[in-house]
Amino acid sequence: MTAAVSPAGALAAPARRLGRLQREGRAAYLFLAPALLFFCVFLILPFLFAIVLAFSDWGGFDLGTLKWAGTANFGDVLSFDGTFVKPILVNTLLFAFGSVFLATFGSVLVAYCIDRLAFQGFWRVLYFLPVVATVVAIGNVWKMMYQPAGLINGVLNKLGVNSIGFLSDASYALPSVTVVQAWASIGGAVLILTAGLKAIPEMYYEAAEVDGASTWHMFWSITLPLLRPALLFVLITQFIGGLQSFALIIVMTGDGGPVNATNVAAFEMYQRAFKYGAWGTASAMAMVLFVIILAITLLQLWVARRRGEETS
């Protein structure tokens, strides 16, 4: 109550503002309308449908024949006599963990080295090439290189090593596709990590150098800790990607073979649904994988946050 305002003015200003806000609100929802409509039809509706399907028994076509099945689908999927838990879910985790481990290790090393070279842009584009290529190109080229008469066995033979059936031998098939997945995802990780490296202030290194720290020591106690946010992002996104990707496996092995050796959860879901029409079972598989992805993501975030609090 410091300034005397005329009653009319005091009322008119908020009213005008309210009118403007309402107009802005209407405009905002018009701007958002296409996106919101889309999300209703292609996100919320299918998401709810996915949940319903996972708990029901349905032969397809007529929705009137959809029957509630309780948790029967999940029982089928998770039973230990089946193939879903072992080997398929185990394969999925090995594929995702393996490729993320290789890609992260490789990309930290490469990003750190590129940061010390000339022509950094050139190197980054080089490592990024696989990200631009279609999975059909990547899968087929590697399938070709893995053949008995392919490039890799050619090199092995030159070194006096016998040919390996990379994709035909059940014990080599999963590691072989895992390597390709890692190879294809290094480029994206290198880009993000390079940005992270550039954000580390130069003076930390200068100070460490004055104190006589070795390159290795500097990497361990300056680079790595300060790179952690970028590293965490890379880990989480690649892990989520690895757990659900199966395009590479379709292209390279056709059916997840030999005998399920490269079959992963999302691929099994795809086959159950579109090859056999087992919508309920397939949807239950999708739901299980979704919950696993969600749990692992939250766990990673939680661990990162706790560590962050301890160090700061």
């Binding site: 905002a28 958002l32 996106a35 919101l36 999300f39 039809v41 292609f42 996100l43 509706l45 299918p46 998401f47 449908f49 996915a50 399907l53 397809g60 989520i240 659900q244 199966f246 999302a266 879901m269 795809y270 649904a273 579109f274 919508w279 397939a282 949807s283 999708a286 739901m287 994988l289 979704f290 992805i293 969600l294 993501t297």
Partner: peptide, 26 residues
């Protein structure tokens, strides 16, 4: 506005494979 923005962020968390079957049926 805040709710819708958070919703948009959440849409990025939904993995595509989960929506594959229902979207095909739709």
């Amino acid at each position: 506005r805040a709710v819708i923005f958070r919703f948009i962020l959440a849409t990025m968390m939904l993995p595509p494979f989960l929506l594959l079957i229902p979207t095909f049926l739709i």
